[in-house]
Amino acid sequence: MDIIDLHCDVLEKLTRLEEADFQNDGRLHANLNHLKAGKVKVQVFAIFVHPSVPQKEKFLEAARQIEAFHTKVLSKTEMVHITDWRQLDELKEGEIGAVLSLEGCDCIGDDLEKLQLLINAGVKIVGLTWNDENTVAYGTSELPSKGIKPFGHKVIQLLNKHDIILDVAHLNEQGFYEVLPLAKHIIASHCNARSLCNHPRNLTDGQIKALVQYGGRIHVVFYPPFVEQDKESTTINNLLQHIQYLTTLVGVESIGFGSDFDGMDPLSIEKLSNASEYPNLINALLKSYSTDEVLMMASKGFKDFVMEVGKA
């Protein structure tokens, strides 16, 4: 069964690890061989600039990751750069779609032209923040009562103009609710249910329902502390509890996967430690859901969602 995964941090590793090879480097959870073995048909590659990078160097680091995307990921013949969502229906047997996303707008500072350059480079999904405050908004490590900044409204307008999907995964609570009526297209790329695991990176029932009411989706994340509180390792069964809770809350059509592979070293879910082990999750889901329902979560729900992007 084909998988669409909304989040991995391979690009940050490719620019940081010495002589990293996207095809088969065992240090990469979502390397090419793992993606192929796990039947991942589309992988979203996040541009994540670590907060330790000085502000004046952040945009250059984002550019370095885009360069790695082209020279180390797209150079593999199986990978196809998705710059138009309609390409998802055009992928051939053996091809894997590769999508760029931006995990937080820290790298643009207060310069909309830098965001425009990233959009021109093919970024299709943008998160306003990582966990901290920037010129746009406040992340989940900040007070939940703080909202979107004035510059953030300009950012959202630019995203809407280009039909870019806004990702709320790292926004604080007030910012989350403020963007819902403002964003043309919205998603939570890698979050779980806070009712089951009380972590600020997870979403409350109210947030999840509101997200879906505004046409959005939630993609579950495999990071153990977001699955089971304060745990460095967990099981597929515990992840299934989040999926079952969410499908009851908002339906299978609103659920997907956003693994966070390569962004959670050395933590992992047992038997779901890299992209090659996706079949273990699919087989577990098939014990509780029909094939059509699992397909909806694995890929069809997101494909249906993005085929409407640009029509609104």
Rank of each mutant, 00 (worst) to 15 (best):
L286G: 11
V99F: 02
V252T: 15
V155E: 02
A169T: 15
K58I: 04
M264K: 15
E67V: 10
S290F: 09
V10E: 03
G147L: 07
G104N: 02
D110L: 11
M296Q: 15
A137E: 08
L182R: 08
K311F: 10
V220I: 14
P279K: 11
G104Y: 00
G256I: 07
I125N: 00
T247D: 03
I255D: 01
G216T: 00
K114R: 14
R16G: 07
V220D: 01
I218E: 01
L196S: 03
S52P: 05
V126Y: 09
Q23N: 13
G26M: 10
H219W: 07
G38C: 09
Y138F: 15
F305R: 01
H190R: 08
L6W: 03
I3G: 02
E173P: 06
M307V: 04
G122K: 00
L88K: 05
K39L: 15
E103W: 00
R16C: 09
G26I: 08
N33I: 12
Q229T: 10
V309Q: 09
I148G: 04
V73A: 04
M1Y: 14
I218Q: 09
D84P: 08
S101L: 03
E173Q: 15
E113S: 13
I282M: 12
K72T: 05
G104Q: 01
L32N: 04
S189D: 02
H70N: 11
